[in-house]
Design a protein around this nucleic acid. Structure first.
Lengths: 250, 250
DNA sequence: ATTTTCCTGTTTGTATACATTATCATTCGC
DNA sequence: GCGAATGATAATGTATACAAACAGGAAAAT
């Protein structure tokens, strides 16, 4: 505890536990032992328990009826529903932004991010800055969520985005570049532009429909990594939580 | 602590704190003092802090940047957005139920509840069993949320329903019967039937649109109690959180 | 008179101690 | 031999003790 980053024990507990779950260090169904983990993470049980409550909210852990909690097992259907849910709430945010009118500054900053994504994409696989795309994509969705000006909607969108594998960048992390990836990036970028256009024209229904369809791109990625691309799935954090994926520590 | 219902301190803390917020015993903007409240509620700080975290999630409290938390202030726009959000997620649940097919047993039990609501409504103001309607309405929405068979969606719907003033029964509690209330009950019941019909016919878009519009009935109630019906607002728990409502303790 | 600094009382965040409850293996009974 | 009861063990839920951070005010200096 005399370290430099003793900052806040709660954050250390949260990040440490989250990482252990996503990397599979804690396997699906494993009961999370408070004393052992607290010792490993170098924090007390109190902040660890708060972190556990947070991760239960996020859907990474589930309470056991007897007390305590375990790493949650996800099915493909769970992730699919979480993606559909994210698309729905994102759709709501975009519809409200269109109907109520988004402020020009916010729209412009979204445009700016899209331009930078164009640059990052280059035009061929070799010219694509993958890390940069991932970062900018997350930024765009973050900004987009705030265009509607509703704290309630934004807050909820942040929540569902934090669900395991449901976020817009869930399948990008650690992924290297495949040809099919680049094509999906091009499609996604086109959808980004169409969504902004719809919001500008105050076309709420169109903005909503586009946002929903855009989220479903993630579903394709999920199925890719659960199927033919399974050998690359090791790089996707959290995919070991999905039942049927036999990736364990190692 | 030697009482009969020492059951679980966490639940006592949660319910006690929630009640004090909704009844206005803790005013908007008041800082929640942990030691004082723990003493009043007869629990320790530990379960109280967990309850506070829960209520922060539900949107009744907000963290202060300095630490600790205070009773959150809501605007009409906040409640309106929460209602719209609830309608959107309820719409998703209904669309999925229609598209994927709801099991016959669940549909039948929804029918049964609707029949009992008919009975509770009677046909005139005098014949209406108000308490019963409120209870059955909550039951119906609870069942409806489960028709889609998706734990992820159901869970999220339960969450947004718990948001202050956003639930389907938020404006029913403690309300006595007014003529306009009965009319809105009749409309709501008609929408209930239409939603179930759409789900049975696998008409997803219709089910979704109906669920959204149904939620907006709550918005009318909100505006009634913020406007002409303000003198009756005292009975609506939590409405004192809405800025502009000058209802305080007493 | 105003501002700044320091002090003190209070409050939160964290750690740990305690008690109740679940878990598991062993043993007893059938 | 198998099942159920039971006791040892370990885990969670709760309470309290401690320390660091914050708020608020008084006093001193400009």
């Amino acid at each position: 505890m005399a370290e430099a980053e003793k900052k806040i024990s709660f954050q250390r507990a949260l990040m440490g536990l989250r990482e252990r779950i996503l990397t599979g260090a804690l396997g699906v169904g494993d009961r999370v032992s408070e004393v052992a983990l607290a010792r490993d993470l170098g924090v007390s049980r109190t902040p660890l328990r708060e972190a556990m409550a947070e991760l239960i909210e996020q859907g990474l852990l589930e309470r056991m009826p007897t007390g305590g909690c375990m790493v949650r097992s996800l099915t493909r259907a769970d992730v699919m529903d979480a993606i559909e849910l994210r698309g729905t709430v994102e759709g709501l945010a975009c519809r409200l932004a269109a109907e109520r009118g988004a402020d020009a500054h916010g729209l412009d900053s979204c445009d700016a991010i899209l331009a930078r994504i164009d640059t990052a994409l280059g035009g061929s696989v070799e010219q694509t800055d993958f890390e940069r795309y991932m970062d900018l994509n997350a930024q765009f969705h973050h900004r987009l969520a705030r265009l509607c000006g509703s704290a309630v909607v934004t807050r909820e969108l942040d929540r569902v985005t934090a669900m395991p594998m449901a976020g817009p960048s869930a399948f990008l992390q650690g992924q290297s570049m495949f040809p099919h990836t680049l094509r999906s990036f091009v499609v996604a970028q086109d959808q980004h532009r169409a969504i902004l256009d719809a919001i500008r024209r105050r076309e709420g229904a169109r903005a909503e429909a586009l946002a929903r369809e855009h989220a479903r791109l993630a579903l394709r990625n999920l199925d890719y990594f659960l199927g033919e691309g399974a050998r690359h799935a090791r790089r996707i954090p959290g995919i070991s939580l999905v039942a049927g994926t036999a990736l364990r520590k190692g």
